[in-house]
Nucleic acid binder design. Structure first.
Ligand SMILES: [Mn+2]
Ligand SMILES: [Mn+2]
Ligand SMILES: [Zn+2]
Ligand SMILES: [Zn+2]
Lengths: 149, 149
DNA sequence: TTGGCAATTAAGAATAAATATTAATTAAAA
DNA sequence: TTTTAATTAATATTTATTCTTAATTGCCAA
């Protein structure tokens, strides 16, 4: 359990160690995200911040979030691209998503399926389904990296 | 394990029972999705089908997939909206996603986290993370439905 | 403390996915 | 054959995201 100050120190240190300038925009965007529990979109962060930073551009929010993501300072809560993808396989199953080629590989996991949900979820609402998304780099992509061409 | 024929029969029965006409386009789109393991996008389905159905419009593919989704004939492989969302909470945790208000609620699930991955996944590639997405309708939305206004 | 300059940002244009609108055409089902 | 739902085509709109360019700014070194 880190204090607010420690988290900000770590933020600063991470930026510095990657040669990133500590701009007002970066600080405010990170702080806003830290204080939020609602997993905001770039748009909504921008909207929220524009009273404090009236000149902040939406592009900067997107760019900054992408930078932070690379540094591991923030996470993108998304399992895949923005393009919706479909399947006719309607039996319960899960997906491995290759971060590189965006390929989806099905897998089944019966011991997960039959597992009860954690108490943490009791009382959030009606549950309609649960799914696992495992992500990483698929074999095809690993091969390609080894011998390029 | 259903045979191809049984699956198509179920498709036909589902369409019929909802008063939907069994059009050439619907059949082809469903068949293409059935035979594909790559979780195609609407765009790529359209591209794939346009040799066989040169007049098929992209609009029809989108419309048809949406219809099929409502009937439970196909699934949209997506855990959330197409809008990316972010968080600064980088500790391992999972999400409850409200299908109605798109709210995300964090939860932790240590017994899942410490669980090994299923054998089905051995050999797919390098694994970088695993996450659960539980979806349903949150309490706020359930309340609103009870007493609208 | 003050330039100098690369990094960063702002502003707006561009792109891409998805959806909507309309009217004309096609084809499934009774 | 007739009715009616569905599809098409053409066009427009919306929304998310990225690109381009020029101006600005953080930071380092003099
Ligand atoms: Mn699948
Ligand atoms: Mn979260
Ligand atoms: Zn891959
Ligand atoms: Zn809700």
């Amino acid at each position: 359990m880190d204090t607010e100050q420690q988290v900000m120190d770590h933020f600063e240190a991470t930026c510095r160690s990657h040669g990133l300038k500590l701009t007002h925009q970066r600080l405010e965007i990170y702080r806003a995200l830290l204080q939020s529990a609602e997993h905001p979109s770039a748009e909504s962060l921008h909207k929220q911040l524009e009273t404090r930073l009236p000149t902040l551009s939406l592009d900067t929010v997107y760019r900054t979030l992408a930078t932070f993501e690379q540094l591991g300072l923030v996470k993108r809560v998304e399992t895949m691209s923005s393009q919706a993808r479909f399947e006719a396989k309607i039996e319960q199953h899960h997906h491995f998503f290759c971060d590189q080629c965006r390929q989806l590989i099905d897998f089944t996991w019966h011991s997960f399926d039959s597992m009860g949900l954690p108490e943490a979820l009791m009382g959030v609402g009606t549950i309609r389904g649960k799914n696992v998304v495992v992500h990483g780099v698929c074999n095809d992509c690993l091969e390609k990296k080894k011998k390029p061409e």
